[in-house]
Design a protein around this nucleic acid. Structure first.
Lengths: 251, 251
DNA sequence: CAGTGGTCTAGACCACTGG
DNA sequence: CAGTGGTCTAGACCACTGC
């Protein structure tokens, strides 16, 4: 047998029409032709524009809707998804209060510890597809629910795309931080990956979260991506799990 | 304002044809008309059987496929999903080795600690929709990867549905435990919910996992459901996260 | 009422599998 | 080659929204 099997990476190279249409719509979304929260053209309009039947446009939009890139509303139209005003606020936050739902506990209080421009370390650079030493914005903050500090997290953002981000703007924006990224920097996060571990906090971390030393905490490392699988944020969080838990649905 | 808002629970009471067809197919799946791994009738056959067009059957099956209840294979047919032989073995296990993929590390070694029939406690009963004191099967075991004990877990199963389950059968079955449930007991798990926490093990747990006392561990409580959202398993696991991590994709 | 997305049909043709 | 799922079309009609 030969050393390599060429078929392992062979691509079918066949793309149905609706998938090509999907790509075209995606390009318009990335380019900002339609902004988050706005309506995109009707299925009939897009069918005319792309010279295909409505059913083909429909299937393309079906896939985009399944990926949470657009939202369909019967009788109204199809809208570009947004982290603001979406009734599922905090779409990426899976931490839930042990009793009741998240609505019952209300929005998080944010305390920004610092926000500074730094040179990226090797691991941050790798996560964000940058080179070590490239400028990144680093934000550290504590989220509290009902006055109880619950999440201690740090964010790293590419310095280029987030020029001018200050502690003020992080703290004062009403609504999800990801919504602010859309409005202020035109960056929309479409998906994320998380890696979870159980860890013991160092003394400073324990103090910030107001828990006894050695209290086990849930470590959540998240990489968030914009369109085209471009990583745009690394986030490392420590979650208290004495009053909350991380909820996950396995389909 | 009145105390209650009737519209809050009002149901549209409109169900499109394809969804009714989906329900009919679901009933056949539950009843065992087609068993896990087998092919279901072709779209044309089902269209004739239900007196609808192929497109309508298609849309019904599309939803079932999206929920991982069936698997479509172009040119071959549509098959009832199964935990066996599915190239994604361990569909519900999100623990991954830090380096490399799960295939690289090979299958888990299972050591069954005990398997006995007990009366359910209040919390187990609630999770399984039983009454306190009802008979349940309790299994405790350790899963090791490459000889390293990594997961300590306990399973609780309704005594009625799993009559005759022994430590032998749990330990000797080749392949995922959920596949054994299908073959031996006709129970197919279709979805699950997990709640994660960071905890410190007690001395016995630390000893079984061969970690120092107070090593933070990931506590994973899972409830697995068969068709119709009927809970059929409660599983409580302690995961080591020094060599592995819990991976989650946020769409 | 017009405009949107959602359903359903019928038919033609394509891509893939296996004998 | 026949049989399967997958694509694409054209057209009719339904359900929902807002004016």
């Amino acid at each position: 047998m030969l050393a390599a099997d060429a078929s392992a990476t062979a691509t079918p190279a066949f793309s149905p029409l609706y998938r090509q249409i999907k790509e075209l719509i995606l390009h318009s979304l990335q380019s900002g032709e339609w902004k988050p929260g706005e309506a995109i053209p009707s299925e009939m309009d897009l069918a005319v524009r792309f010279r295909v039947s409505q059913g083909t446009v429909r299937k393309a939009i079906d896939e985009l809707a399944a990926e949470n890139l657009v939202i369909r509303r019967q009788g109204k139209g199809t809208f570009v998804a947004t982290h603001a005003e979406q009734h599922v606020q905090y779409r990426f936050l899976k931490l839930m209060p042990d009793s009741g739902d998240r609505d019952a506990e209300g929005p998080a209080q944010r305390a920004v510890l610092d926000c500074k421009r730094v040179r990226s370390t090797a691991d941050v650079a790798r996560a964000l597809s940058l080179r070590s030493g490239d400028a990144v914005i680093q934000v550290r903050r504590v989220l509290s629910f009902g006055g109880v500090p619950t999440i201690l997290e740090a964010l790293w953002l590419p310095g280029n795309a987030f020029k001018g981000l200050t502690a003020e703007r992080v703290a004062s924006y009403a609504g999800p931080t990801y919504a602010m990224f859309e409005v202020e920097f035109g960056v929309r996060m479409v998906r994320a990956e998380e890696r979870l571990r159980a860890v013991a906090p160092d003394p400073q971390q324990a103090q910030l979260l107001q828990v006894p030393p050695l209290t086990p905490l849930l470590s959540v490392e998240r990489i968030a991506y914009t369109y085209n699988d471009v990583p745009m944020e690394l986030r490392r969080g420590l979650y208290r799990t004495d009053t909350h838990h991380y909820r996950n649905d396995l389909g």
